[in-house]
Design a protein around this nucleic acid. Structure first.
Length: 332
DNA sequence: AATGTAGTCAACCGCGAGGTT
DNA sequence: CAACCTCGCGGTTGACTACAT
């Protein structure tokens, strides 16, 4: 990407991570848990700086990550929290379990900003654009008045604004008040939203035995599937595939998981004979096998034809580390 | 079919906070 | 208390893809 390296060390790799690198990092953290990031690349045998490893893990490889687009509720929460917290993405992310600051930031810049503008709301101030234009110099400390929109010349905009703000108003008012009082914004927001607090800097280090892994009840999701937001996912329609292996019981325990499923020919490893691991050794072994090189994977698709898919490392790592892949059952 | 443009998102950089020496 | 180190955050970049012309 044409920039000078973030660290002085020469010979460190930059750019997209390969599946092999992912594998090394995963294996290392599975074995040792998270520790001093500076030491990680050396110990894991990676030619990366610690910063890069941390970023890759926290934004992509972490087992508790959700993938895919933000839901409507999540989006509302982001708008809500942004109105109060501004561009404090990590704070915002801490209220959306499984979402990273980077992901939210990207989503904000690419989706939400536009949506708000389309609705006539300034994404920075969260006020109607029309009224902002009519203000010579909008006051900087307007957060506490968000629940009470300013005079608007356009009733239409006002309506849209009110509609949007009504979602937020009680929370924001309360939060803003609280923040002014004692600065404990996040605490109050959590109370207001009644969500589980999840702040990455408060999460304890993950020990290997605490990492959730799929068990034999589940089959590895396909290279790309309907639950993935990846642009490559359109190749498959898994809706008619065998879904019986998805345990109803687990559905009850984990109702929010958007389960992926597909049918695989498990007669050879080229066809994803994966996900049926008896123990973690087998899992690691499969993981190594899966991301060791480039495979051609034949997957049955809806119309009874077969599509041969060449999977490169990045694609594979995405699939492997897709949300559903991890969050099933704890290995004992 | 070729080219241009816009959108998306993983990854990078610089900086500041907080801890340690 | 200063210097140093490590980590995390927010802004930005650029590769890749999808869509338009």
């Amino acid at each position: 990407m044409g920039r000078k390296p973030c660290c002085d060390k020469v010979g460190l790799k930059q750019g997209p991570w390969t599946a092999d690198e992912d594998n090394k990092l995963i294996n290392f953290i599975l074995t040792n848990g998270q520790c001093c990031w500076r030491a990680v690349p050396k110990l894991a045998g990676l030619l990366r700086c610690g910063k890069s490893c941390r970023l890759r893990w926290t934004n992509y490889l972490r087992p508790d990550l959700k993938r895919g687009l933000l839901s409507e509720n999540e989006e509302k929460m982001v708008i809500d929290l942004h109105a109060q917290l501004g561009n404090r993405w990590s704070k915002i992310a801490s209220h959306l379990p499984g979402r990273t600051d980077n992901e939210i930031k990207n989503h904000w810049n690419t989706h939400i900003k536009k949506k708000l503008k389309k609705m006539g709301i300034d994404p920075v101030t969260h006020k109607p654009l029309a009224s902002i234009e009519n203000q010579a110099s909008p006051p900087a400390t307007e957060k506490t008045t968000i629940s009470e929109p300013m005079d608007c010349q356009s009733n239409e905009i006002n309506e849209v604004f009110n509609e949007t703000i009504s979602i937020q108003s009680s929370t924001i008012t309360e939060v803003a008040k609280d923040e002014q009082e004692d600065g404990e914004d996040s605490k109050r927001i959590v109370e207001a939203h009644q969500v589980v607090d999840f702040c990455t800097d408060e999460v304890p280090l993950i020990e290997p035995h605490e990492i959730l892994l799929p068990t034999k009840s589940y089959i590895l999701p396909p290279l790309s599937s309907s639950c993935s937001s990846s642009p490559t996912s359109s190749n498959y329609d898994i809706s008619t595939s065998n879904q019986s292996f998805v345990h109803e019981e687990i559905h009850q325990h984990l109702p929010n998981i958007d389960w992926c499923s597909t049918s695989f020919d498990s007669t050879n490893y080229n066809n994803f004979d994966a996900g049926l691991w008896e123990n973690d050794d087998e899992f690691i072994s499969n993981l190594n096998m899966l991301i060791n090189d480039q495979y051609e994977t034949e997957i049955s698709v809806q119309n009874d034809t077969s599509t041969t898919v060449a999977t490169d490392f990045n694609q594979y790592s995405r699939m492997l580390l897709n949300d559903d892949f991890w969050k099933f059952e704890q290995l004992l």
